[in-house]
């Protein structure tokens, strides 16, 4: 009887060890995802939670669109399980490096027919090619929040392909994210639509998708928020105001006081609408966007 009792104990211990070993073997490695900007990082993290390790190797003080990776950074991208690109020509470095296509997802490819083309003001000619301008694409696609939802959808599809065992969770997370993005999209439309023809000035040409999506009457200049405007820039703005009498300038970041003062003399008020290309010091993409919309209510009240 004592022998049978002891046998039971051993059997229980054996089964415990067997199952605990099996569970240890089944622990999956976290999917290693590299992204090119913060909105993609936010979407990937919102969708996949702890199952994915998302890296944006751009330093916080640098705008990812103008960042240049080192050879080691490129190597890290190449070694990732998944590389999420914004597409639409975002981050020029992408077109000059070698990335494995099998791991790369262009999150805006699905709506590439909606890309906005921007041309250099001045054309040039050399060689046999004749006159041409270096055409580019507007790249801040996520500023149109309905397009941002589509980008998030491209991400969820790819992550589900890589980790199909968590599909239900990922899809549920995506639906929640999509709902929030589209709710914010509706809120912007509600804020803007009554007075969407009000002329405004964008301090930088990064609001193309935003302006198109919400029907804004905006024109762009090239003013940096951390630099004093040059006399040339002021003259250019004065000329623009003749045909486009705006009372507001939309900035990417908080402008320095001297720039705000110059604008105030011209009768232009300043407001910040942060595109949030890099990780914000506080909050997340949606909280920054909500804050942007609240500030926008001042412009379109």
């Amino acid at each position: 009887m004592i022998f049978v009792h002891s046998l039971h104990r051993w059997l229980v211990l054996f089964l415990f060890l067997l199952f605990s070993g099996a569970n240890a073997g089944a622990t999956e490695a976290s999917l290693n995802v590299y992204v090119v900007n913060y909105p993609l990082k936010y979407f990937a993290e919102r969708i996949s939670g702890p199952h994915v390790n998302v890296t944006l190797p751009v330093p916080p003080e640098v705008d990812p669109v103008y960042w240049t990776p080192s050879i080691a950074d490129i190597g890290a991208y190449q070694q990732a399980d998944l590389i999420l690109l914004n597409g639409a020509g975002y981050a020029k470095w992408v077109s000059k490096v070698s990335l494995p296509r099998s791991k790369t997802v262009d999150t805006s490819r699905e709506f590439r027919d909606q890309y906005i083309t921007v041309k250099e003001a001045k054309t040039h000619s050399h060689g046999a090619e004749g006159q041409h301008a270096h055409e580019g694409l507007a790249f801040t696609t996520w500023m149109d929040l309905s397009l941002a939802a589509k980008q998030a959808e491209a991400i969820v599809d790819e992550i589900v392909r890589k980790r199909p065992q968590h599909e239900d969770l990922f899809r549920a997370n995506y639906r929640s994210l999509e709902k929030e993005l589209l709710a914010l999209d509706s809120r912007i439309k509600a804020v803007v639509s009554p007075n969407h023809t009000i002329p405004i000035i964008f301090s930088h040409p990064v609001y193309e998708y935003f302006a198109k999506a919400y029907g804004l009457n905006g024109r762009s200049v090239h003013w940096e928020p951390d630099q004093d405007p040059t006399p040339g820039q002021v003259a250019e703005l004065n000329k623009l105001l003749e045909s486009h009498p705006a009372n507001w300038m939309i900035w990417e970041n908080t402008p320095i006081k001297s720039a705000v003062d110059v604008l105030e003399v011209m009768g232009i008020k300043s407001v910040v609408f942060n595109p949030c290309g890099n990780v914000p010091p506080e909050g997340d993409l949606l909280s920054v966007m909500k804050d942007n919309v609240t500030k926008f209510e001042l412009v379109f009240h």
Binding site: I71, Q78, K96, V97, S98, L99, P100
Partner: peptide, 23 residues
Amino acid sequence: TLDYFDFRGLNVESGRNLAVIGE
């Protein structure tokens, strides 16, 4: 593209793989 190296099972013996254009 880099997928060719994975597809053929080609490994770099010395140095590194392609990173930027011109290499």
